[in-house]
Structures are given as C-alpha cells and as structure tokens.
Design a protein around this nucleic acid. Structure first.
Lengths: 120, 120
DNA sequence: CTGCATCTTCGAGTGCACTTGAAGTCAAGC
DNA sequence: GCTTGACTTCAAGTGCACTCGAAGATGCAG
C-alpha cells in the first residue's frame, strides 16, 4: 500500500540516498516501515517532500528547514512561529525576484546593444 | 589617478583577494599597474566588474563567465557568440524568476492558511 | 535458491566559489 | 627606519548540500 523509496525518489526527484539523509537530519519525521522494515511513504509524506523541495529551490538553508520541520512536529502551538518563518522567507524570495528582474533588464540592454552592433 | 585594489574592493563589493583571484582565472584582463607595480583599476574595469557581478548573482557559473570574458578579449568578431550566450542566460534567468514566482504563490497560500488557523 | 532492493551505520568524497594563510619581497608615507 | 599596504606563488581550508561507497544483514519476487 505504501510507496517504496524507489517510487518516492522518482516522484519527488530526490535520490533514495537523499531521502534517507533528509530523514536522518529530521526533515522528514519517522517515515513508516513495512513488515520487512522498509520505508513506506504515504501521500502526506510526498506532499511534505514537495513543499520541502519548494523551500530548498527558493533558497532556504537546510538548517532553517530543519527548524521549520521541528516546529511542525511540535503541533499547532507553533503555528504563529512557522507563519513568521514563511513570511520572512517570502520577503527574501520577493527580493531575489526583484534583483533578478533588475539584472534581466541589464541583460536585455546588452543584448540589444549586440543586435545594434550586428546591424550596423 | 587609478583606483587602488582597496577602493575597487569597496566599490565592487568583492574582496581584494577575490579581485586577484578573478584576475588570475582570466575574468579581468590585465589590470594596469602603477609605478610600484600595484594594481590600478580604471572606470571601465569597475563597470566590467559590475557586469560580472550581475552574471554571478544571476547564477552564471564562473566557467561560463571566463568563456564570455575570453570572447570579449578576442574583439568584435565574437559579438554574435557573446550575444547568444547572454540570450541563453537570459532565458535561464527568466525561467528561474517564473519558478520563484510560482513558489511564492505556494508560500502565500500556506501563510494565508496559518492566518486562517490563528483567527479561528 | 538466487538475486536484487532494501536496510543500518559510518566516514569520506564532490563541486562550486571562494577564502584563508604562509612566506617572502618591495615601495611609499609618516 | 618602520609601519602599512601591496605584491607574488602556492597550498590548504571553508561551507553548503548533497553524494557515494563500504560492509554486512535481511527479506521478498521469480
């Protein structure tokens, strides 16, 4: 019934090694085991992995993700703190987007310049 | 008249060490020297550094930057290739921005969810 | 029965972009 | 004359996030 590490790897895009690593450092909490002791991922596990991946690709350090995961484990009492973490992270991502957009306009300028050069 | 490495460091935001490193790997070509053999940066040097920094912060690998710098050194004949490099890089940056924007909306969703939780 | 995937723990290796430190020389400013 | 900042070369270290490999055990599928 559960999802094997192999499948979870394929779905999440993370290697089996990395999945074990994430579990070891506490990013994923207590993945269930089947009768043979093998990891058995659930749908919520995969959703959580998906969210973790979004945090990572948006540049949240592993240490912060661990902190967030730990708060989540502590239950609803930590909801406000988790929200604040996400809000702070959101701000950083927006800044990053703004910076990248600015830099793209410099690229555009340069590219236009090259085009002008080639057509002269 | 020239700009010392100290000033160039302050203006560019790169350490003196990094400036020497960039020169060593060919990112900056032949920075001028004063009578005492000390580096003397020019305004164009600083502008180039500024552009290099934009390439870096937008995620271009050092190796690609070196390639671009080399083409630039080869003169106008390589303009089209440089333009193509910038265009390809521009595409990658736009994709990155799109990805980040998507991820921000997931953050927004989660944050809203926390707000709803807190107000219930 | 065989073979493969999985499990555990552990330490070491990788890639990138610096960053630091050592060791010794040199020249200008105070 | 001494300090300060710069120069050179070179090797080693750092931080992050994996990534890999070894070693030995186990259990399910064909």
């Amino acid at each position: 019934m559960g999802i094997t590490i192999q499948e979870a790897s394929r779905i999440s895009g993370l290697s089996a090694h990395t999945l074990r690593y994430y579990e070891q450092i506490g990013l994923i909490h207590q993945v269930g085991r089947d009768t043979g002791g093998r990891r058995s991922y659930t749908q919520p596990d995969l959703e959580w992995l998906d969210f973790l991946t979004k945090l990572r690709t948006t540049g949240m350090p592993i240490a912060d993700m661990c902190r967030y995961a730990e708060l989540r484990r502590q239950g609803p009492a930590t909801a406000a703190e988790r929200r604040r973490m996400l809000e702070a992270h959101r701000e950083r991502v927006l800044e990053r987007i703004a910076q990248l957009s600015e830099d793209v306009s410099v690229l555009d300028y340069k590219i236009d310049f090259y085009h002008a050069m080639e057509n002269s």
